[in-house]
Amino acid sequence: MKKSIAYLLMLPGLLFLVFFMVVPLLFTVSSTLVQQGHFSFDGYLAFFKDQYFIEILFNTLKVSLITTLMCIFISFPAAYYISKLRTRKKTILIGLAVFPLLTSAIVRSFSWMIILGKKGILNTLLLHLHIINEPINILYTPTAMIIGLVHLFLPLMIISLIGVMENISDDLVQAAESLGASRFTAFRKIVFPLCIPGLVVGSILVFVGSLTAYTTPALLGGKQQVISVFLYQNAMTLNDWYAASIIATIMIAITFIVIGFMNLAARKLNPKG
């Protein structure tokens, strides 16, 4: 009786999702496996033989990996500092980190267009200081894309890390120190291992986010293609929906592989959360 109420309450949402999301996704995936009425893997084989596509795929993965590593590197000290602060200052800093997160990706990518453009702030500054003699091209390069993505996803990593660091009691660090550990050793042996769950969540968010981001690469990456832009072009510019469907399926597969792999790694690294 009670259970049937539960299912009944979920029914509208369930129908909505199944009808508008699950079925379209399933049909998209299945359409890539059928050619002339027969099951066929040819579409994928062709894709993975295509040097151009492999390059895009590899490029996307590389950009996502660099973005994730940079986010980790920058976030760790910042998150550790914020997590140790007292309430008021902490609230303000978390707020300042969340603000960009809730601001449109277009706005944030656009700001980097102003900074990195040929007549942008960076070039003006470098020319003015005579560090360079001619404007350098940063905008529309992978570097610009990585800068934009790091800027886009940094708050996610900071917030994920603060989440775990807040739960690491000062007592643990003090216990380690009272047992003879230096501050650095206490961080390395106690704080860092305990951060791994947050690090994994943050890394999944950043890596998958970078992997599938559209706006930032489209605005800052120029002709440097990533997989999401490639999907869009196939679907909307080239009108090749079969190719777009294959790319879509590959993207879903990669996303779930990455999430699964990272969760596995987390369990290996941290046997007793």
Binding site: M21, V23, T212, L231, A235, A248, F256
Partner: peptide, 22 residues
């Protein structure tokens, strides 16, 4: 997981399949 899944599935994929079917 199903109710949370729109967050996990790449937005661009979701957009494309919706165009295609919806």
């Amino acid at each position: 997981a199903l109710f949370i899944s729109p967050l996990l599935i790449p937005g661009i994929v979701l957009g494309f399949t919706m165009l295609k079917y919806v």
